[in-house]
Design a protein around this nucleic acid. Sequence first.
DNA 1: AACTTCGGTATTGCAGGTAAATTATTGCAA
DNA 2: TTGCAATAATTTACCTGCAATACCGAAGTT
Lengths: 244, 244
Amino acid sequence: MGGLLDNKVQAQSLVDVVAERIEAAIISGQLEPGSRLSEQALATSLGVSRGPLREAIRRLEGRKLLERTPNIGVRVAALSLRDLNEILQVREALEGMACGLAALNMSDAEIAELRRLLDNHEKQRSVQENKGYYQESKDFDFHFRIVAGSGNERLARMLTGDLYYLLRVYRYKSSTKPGRAMEALQEHRDIAAALERRDPQAAEQAMREHLRHARRYVEEQIAAETTNGHPPATPRKGRVGRLD
Amino acid sequence: MGGLLDNKVQAQSLVDVVAERIEAAIISGQLEPGSRLSEQALATSLGVSRGPLREAIRRLEGRKLLERTPNIGVRVAALSLRDLNEILQVREALEGMACGLAALNMSDAEIAELRRLLDNHEKQRSVQENKGYYQESKDFDFHFRIVAGSGNERLARMLTGDLYYLLRVYRYKSSTKPGRAMEALQEHRDIAAALERRDPQAAEQAMREHLRHARRYVEEQIAAETTNGHPPATPRKGRVGRLD
DNA sequence: AACTTCGGTATTGCAGGTAAATTATTGCAA
DNA sequence: TTGCAATAATTTACCTGCAATACCGAAGTT
């Protein structure tokens, strides 16, 4: 394994490239949620004709990252706080199950690796002590490994391929809250401990609790919004997203 | 509610129509899993050019109902027994949660309606007693209402819009098993009872158990397949699906 | 006889162009 | 000045045509 010739390369059509590019732009924030995209502008900006671009858009449409209104146009899917809450609820159920399965299916080596990952995080955290925030990619890495370790490939794809993306768009870090980073790290440790004990029920519970904290944060925002008569998060409709 | 003017009609592009048509063809079995579809043939058969057809295909691709291999072609997604099992596992978690939420969020009227539905099923079942099988659409209706009653729209769409479709393709009726129909009806009653009691935990448990039975059926098949040295379910590759 | 190579045929991938719909703008009237 | 109407401009929707790639069968080689 590891040889350069072992990986089977797949021909990539323009559509694939364009779709990936747009997806990346959405996640990176280059294309803001709710912003409209002009076919002509995007096509010339990417150097392709409108055919493949439209096909790429259709695919992302199927994945609910883009929304098209016939004869009007395409916009980046915008999630309301309510949507966000719903998605987090789904995530809780799915990733809870994944974690329970991981307790049964992950290899000892994988779990050990997970533990090392956390020690690593701890160090990095102590460096920027007061920054008090858990770097996004680290958090993602931890969750990713567990989900992959569940042994249920479809479940893993649903989480890492679909739900995570939607959440990332919102760079929704409840971890920006003051003491949250330390808490999160501790919760990660609890999860790892349950995995080491090979206790699926405890693992599921630990993961669910961890995720519930994140969700509570959103629920607080919802509550605040509805009481304050806050403007219901108007997604900027005017802006047209480019990729330059 | 229910007025003819309440439904907001959306302009439907050719792509929408074509996509729906293909989806229907897949579900109805007109297009078998694993079968290849020729763009030219489908296009002429549907009376559209290849452009919109390709876009429709791309969308279904995003929804994992179709799979495209670059420069080769498109085929209807084929699920192995292992895939099926994975999906059923996901369904268990998701629909379990949905049922728990439904116990909190469904209106009394909706629950009462559910009960009437079951009485109706019972009658119909007793008519074709020995046929011993729960008509597919009835079963779907029951589950559909509960899922919709969860109050979590995204969850409902994931289940009814995505997972159910994948499962329907396989018309995988564990209900064809001899005594299964009666059992299933009884389980439905248990679920309804938990909802009436407004007991979310019991509701979730009842639903999970109901679904676990279906899954066990698949697991048995997997076991049988691997021991018998059965050919691993070769999806017919040769056939080209038409819509005529 | 089996395997490889080579050419023809069919299918997919991509680009541009025309028609239809929506949005923006301008002019007119109240 | 405001509201409406007609028109112009922009954008999407769809179709056709051409290029690139893969598939299939025949001929040739080992």
